[in-house]
């Protein structure tokens, strides 16, 4: 997993995405802030949503809480 390791630890890219998602943002906006390729943002968002660290509202994503950092 790119954003979350098997023991639940966030990678640097996972942490950067959560910081970018303190406010609702689109995939493209997250890619712009984190400077990650869009495909990695999409892949990472799937992981973060599956882990309950991010929620999706329409086309925007947002971190579910400060505890996620």
């Amino acid at each position: 997993m790119a954003c979350i390791s098997a023991d639940g630890t966030l990678s640097a890219s996972g942490r950067a995405m959560l910081v970018a998602l303190e406010r609702p943002a689109t995939e493209e906006e997250v890619a712009g802030v984190t400077r990650l390729p869009l495909f990695r943002v999409r892949s990472g968002l799937r992981e973060l949503v599956a882990a309950g660290l991010v929620s999706q509202q329409g086309g925007r994503f947002v971190a579910t809480g400060p505890q996620s950092l």
Partner: peptide
């Protein structure tokens, strides 16, 4: 670099 889909 993680699990990717073509659609990504």
């Amino acid at each position: 670099q993680g699990t990717v889909r073509l659609t990504d």
